[in-house]
């Protein structure tokens, strides 16, 4: 079993909120993603069992949404917005800076499995650009100094 009791209880609680069970699929995927860090077939099967829908319906929905990584990622998933508002304020150079700091290329994970770096589509933080999301948190109005500090803090935290 991958999902812990807390996640399962939270998913069950969601099911009760909708006239049809199937509506709980996305919230369930989100709960699972936040616990596990990525999604896979095993997770879909467990969710399907809790929500009482066929496995394929969970997998079908999950594979549509790129917000959920389908492969394991580092402990900290760094998602840099590279759309127009962020790009105008240097999102491309932010990605290069992170590549250099972490010694990986976009799409890769550091050897210690701590950081994965990806670019994503607009995160709705356009007036506080450039920005990145790390796991569930937004980091906005980024500067080199801020990025250095954030990475250092996460490294210390491990």
């Amino acid at each position: 079993m991958i999902l812990n009791d807390n996640s399962k209880a939270r998913i069950r609680e969601r099911v009760g909120l909708y006239p049809r069970h199937k509506s709980a699929i996305l919230p369930a995927l989100t709960i699972a993603y936040h616990q596990v860090g990525h999604l896979n077939d095993e997770v879909y099967k467990e969710i399907a069992k809790i929500i009482k829908v066929p496995y394929v319906e969970v997998a079908e929905a999950a594979t549509f949404y790129t917000m959920f990584p389908k492969e394991p990622v580092g402990k900290y998933l760094i998602q840099v917005c590279h759309n127009i508002s962020c790009a105008l304020l240097g999102a491309d150079s932010l990605v290069e800076y992170l590549e250099q700091k972490l010694d990986i290329k976009k799409g890769e994970t550091t050897k210690d499995n701590l950081f994965t770096l990806v670019t994503v589509e607009c995160l709705g933080s356009c007036a506080t650009a450039p920005m990145m999301q790390i796991n569930q948190d937004y980091y906005e109005n980024l500067t080199r100094e801020k990025v250095d500090r954030i990475l250092e803090e996460l490294r210390v935290k491990g």
């Binding site: 049809r20 509506s23 699929i25 079908e60 549509f64 949404y65």
Partner: peptide
């Protein structure tokens, strides 16, 4: 699920029903 298309109201309905958006 973070998909832009789900801001389109009919895609949103599908997504809320647990379908692909």
């Amino acid at each position: 699920g973070g998909a832009y298309i789900c801001g389109e109201e009919t895609a949103l309905l599908n997504s809320l029903e647990g379908e692909r958006g």
